[in-house]
Design a binder for these strands. Sequence first.
DNA 1: ATGAATGTGTAAATTATTTTCGTAGTTTAA
DNA 2: TTAAACTACGAAAATAATTTACACATTCAT
Lengths: 288, 288
Amino acid sequence: MAGIMTMLREASGKLHPQERRAAQYILEHGMEAAGLGITELAQRAGVSTATVSRLCKTFHFSTFTDFKMKLSAELALQPSAQSYQDIVAGNPLEDIVSAMAANHIRSITDTTRLLDLKKLQQAVDVLAAANRIDIYGSATSGIVAEDFYQKLVRIGIHAASYSDSHLQITSASLLRPGDVALAISYSGETPETIDALRCAKENGATAISLTKFGANTLANLADIQLFTSTLEEGMRRGNMASRIAQLHVIDILFTGLVSSRFDEYVPRLENSYQMVRKYRVNKGVAEG
Amino acid sequence: MAGIMTMLREASGKLHPQERRAAQYILEHGMEAAGLGITELAQRAGVSTATVSRLCKTFHFSTFTDFKMKLSAELALQPSAQSYQDIVAGNPLEDIVSAMAANHIRSITDTTRLLDLKKLQQAVDVLAAANRIDIYGSATSGIVAEDFYQKLVRIGIHAASYSDSHLQITSASLLRPGDVALAISYSGETPETIDALRCAKENGATAISLTKFGANTLANLADIQLFTSTLEEGMRRGNMASRIAQLHVIDILFTGLVSSRFDEYVPRLENSYQMVRKYRVNKGVAEG
DNA sequence: ATGAATGTGTAAATTATTTTCGTAGTTTAA
DNA sequence: TTAAACTACGAAAATAATTTACACATTCAT
């Protein structure tokens, strides 16, 4: 079978008026329609339940339920939309869910495509050899910074993350050659973060930036530039996709790091989970 | 493989004898089981229909039909051989990059597929009407909590996030009816987070949980349960995919919230960016 | 015009699912 | 050890969903 949806579309012309109406509704609402019961589907399509039931029979499905199952199996396989979707007013939650999934997936694939393996490898090497790692980021990027910090702690790497501008500078001013500073900012133009990275660099630390793709102050300043995909104007509200992309890069960095010294780091990672578990008296497992 | 089957396998040990029997049958017969009605499934598994129905409730599916649909959607995807990739020793960075992209994308699609729109809508409604919102999370989940907090602040919603266990309880004890508490924990078994949510609930606040899919203490406690896909054993190291999935759900919640009061919230969101820009003297745009 | 054929909705019959309730077994406390 | 309180579970009642039977239009051919 070359797809239920295709079949519906093709046969649509030959169907009885009301059946076509039901078929049309299914074609237009896809996933949403597949989740409904016959009663609600009929109501929304503006036909009787009997008509829907007969539509299924017309296509030789044994029952409506049979049709529904096969349809949703088919739709589950369907690849999701390939373009960014903007947030608009009064969208049904259903649309928001699929738009968000599309955006995040797009953000990850775009970022992956733009990654420069050489720079990434350099970053991993530098981080692996670092005496001490400082991570800077404000607001949303501060969260990404904190996330990386937490990961590094678990494998026993001496790291710190700062989102406060004074602390950033304070810490940066204490860095020395052999240390690494990672500055995160989607725009690459966050003044505090720029200042902190400049200060770190002046003190001899290796400077890594993580920004949107293209020319920006932070990347220009850095020794090693890492990039996430650039989003369209409307999509920046909420910094959602950009943050996902940043975390994606962080995860790659971290995994690269762990992989490079697998035998040393993995037991530590494992151990950190065990210890958290152990020192939580009498209670269940906790994995955050 | 992730999602329902993984969850069933994992939880199997904790289930009541007859429920386990039903779960076992589903695990062993996959596709075949997904096609059956509750009556026949119960018969073949050697249990009563009531037990099967209860099994679905145990895992927080709204009905047996809901369970069946999500299961068959999951199984339909199986043959496409995408599966989570574990971290291994000495992987070339190139492999890590593609594995990470695959994992994150999988995590997002799995989570999206398992989302319960009704519960999601309830959560959005409750959050929109909330007097005040408390968000609890430890470690990695604390980062997700903080992220949501930052978003809510930008649209002028009175929210707070706590990862410190004492502060969590302190704040929870001050909640009142009309307030909302959102507790985040991948495992759903983080003691501090559970205590905080319980406390919040006892004080009359509406309790929302965000955990891995299935039965867990936190979800059982909550008034509204939100879920991310369940990851396989090896994938948990580093909490990477789980955190991406949690953020994905948070983004949907937030967007749903903004969309529900578009005219009120979007200007605020826009304004918050403008103001940050304005009060940063002489420097470029900053979007985190 | 009139009868046959066709398409459709309503409502009854059927089927499926959930919930209630009682029992039997198990744990807890005295 | 016994009584009380739980707990798990299935039978069956209640509810919900789906299909089928039937009646009523409408169309089309005669």
